[in-house]
Write a protein that binds this DNA or RNA. Sequence first.
DNA 1: CTGAAAGCGCTAACAC
DNA 2: GTGTTAGCGCTTTCAG
Lengths: 343, 343
Amino acid sequence: MRRNRDGAPRASIKDVAERAGVSPQTVSRVANGYEHVRPEKREKVLAAMKELGYRPNRAARNLKSGRFRSIGFVTFNLSTFGNDRTLDAVAEASEKAGYTTTLLPLSNPAATDVAGAVGRLEEQAVDGIILIMSAEVGSLDELPVAAGLPVVIVDSDAHLPYTVVDSDQEQGARIAMQHLIDLGHRDIVHIAGPANSFSAQRRAETYRRIASEAGLVERPIRYGDWSAASGLAHGEQILREHPRPTAIFAGNDQMALGAMHAFHEHGLRIPGDFSVVGFDDAEGAATFWPALTTVHQNLDRVGHTAATLLLSLIEGEPDAHSRTLIPTRLVVRDSTGPASAVH
Amino acid sequence: MRRNRDGAPRASIKDVAERAGVSPQTVSRVANGYEHVRPEKREKVLAAMKELGYRPNRAARNLKSGRFRSIGFVTFNLSTFGNDRTLDAVAEASEKAGYTTTLLPLSNPAATDVAGAVGRLEEQAVDGIILIMSAEVGSLDELPVAAGLPVVIVDSDAHLPYTVVDSDQEQGARIAMQHLIDLGHRDIVHIAGPANSFSAQRRAETYRRIASEAGLVERPIRYGDWSAASGLAHGEQILREHPRPTAIFAGNDQMALGAMHAFHEHGLRIPGDFSVVGFDDAEGAATFWPALTTVHQNLDRVGHTAATLLLSLIEGEPDAHSRTLIPTRLVVRDSTGPASAVH
DNA sequence: CTGAAAGCGCTAACAC
DNA sequence: GTGTTAGCGCTTTCAG
């Protein structure tokens, strides 16, 4: 009998077979819930398993089946908003399907690193990959193809020839803008996420399109980096403009928080002087001062959908390169109000 | 040559051997960077590998070595504050050591579920387990022992006979309280996290001890659930007290945010009327209104330490059941100020 | 320095 | 119903 590193015996199927006085095959059948085993033998085997504390060896099963029953989750940074929740949903869905979720961190979002990661990915013990791209990182195209594994991409560029799942960024930005327009705002500034972020790009484009369609005052887009600090900096600058906009559409809640902080600092009222809309509906947004109107992303569904699609690819479904957009919804709270007549 | 599910050929060590005109053994040696291989053969093998796109088969290696080169990360909820960052640090550290990180979600924090999870854990393809306990969940004692794998526990009860890593909750609560006391506050109320949370318990105990040692006004502890909404509810209630406390020590930043919201709502000033201290230094805390004084947890180090310890256990280090506490630090911002003379 | 043989634990295929 | 045989891909002996 083989032993663990700590010297504890580790029973194999053979040990159980000997103990129960049957063949290894019969043990295997019992272990896998096969029907046609004589009850008395089955009992003996079960007893032997219990006595020996038998656990099937995963590595052997993997080798035999050519599968790992695990899906790889690739991302640069779990702490980026939403990634943890997406991962949570992925892990839950895959667990329900009997799969584990293996984290494959890419330490550095540089193109070279991505290339290097390709090789490592192929050696990993996973049957498919969920890739959270979130930002441009060189040749994305090479990555999944080279891996020779099914891939589902989340939060990424539209035109990729892969199965893609994402929040509907365009629809989210639209309902945010429409809300402000409905309140009478004609001069809305957009604090966008970093220019290399796909979702930031999508939201900013939509801002631009809607502002133009609705004939709003033209304002250059202000690029932040998702951080509250960058929102604060832009908030300060917005205060120095003449005339001032009457509303802010921030690319995420953190930047909205920063802008609101700047306005408070200067004694301005929200939504009296400025209406503010965020994006994400992050934890605490409902309790910001004032409670933040924002676009809620259903990341549970994003993650669940990504996992479900990947699992079906793994199970042999042909890859249709589908593109699934999960709708967002506007959560109206206290940071938005009617545009004041004169500003 | 075996084929992938999608029909793509998958070269084995044997295929490479044939192609290069050597034995499988030599290929293995080259693949593992063995020294004593004639350069010309090495070249041939390398070329054959490249042509065939050879990748070692992880399952076979695992079977042979009895190791998976993966560590399991067990948690109930990734979205709980800090778990994502801890996981990030764990994944990074384990990746550097050539390990992957496998997520083993426990869908339900019930004792029965934990028991059921034990069995599944033992079959997982991991060499050790990091367990984020965070709350009481029945018989924790059984879990890791039964798994027969090295275990490191994070954020848990003190007395467990395992290797434990955690932020130093007691020290964190102490510096928060000391800060308020130094500012002259004698009447401090504590909004604690849920009673079944280990870290909430530890922070609340410390609050109680320090308040008593310093002879502060006695106040019952108010229990929230970590959410901003619960902080808001307690904030409302605190406003109705006579006399009112002059300072709030909240068990986390979200509840601090909630309390501050309540105070704003009633036109009170922070820190003029109330000083507020949080815990966590969550994203955005520096940009709350006002910027929140809080206790910063070094979760990177918590995760890194947990991973490093676990890896050394996996590599054969005897388990010393050590207990590592990572110090926190106070970040003084704008939500705390001197106690006003009369309240 | 290199190859041949054996076996890790499991299960599919084939006897009986 | 049950056992035997063979082999997944790799690496650790052991010969040469």
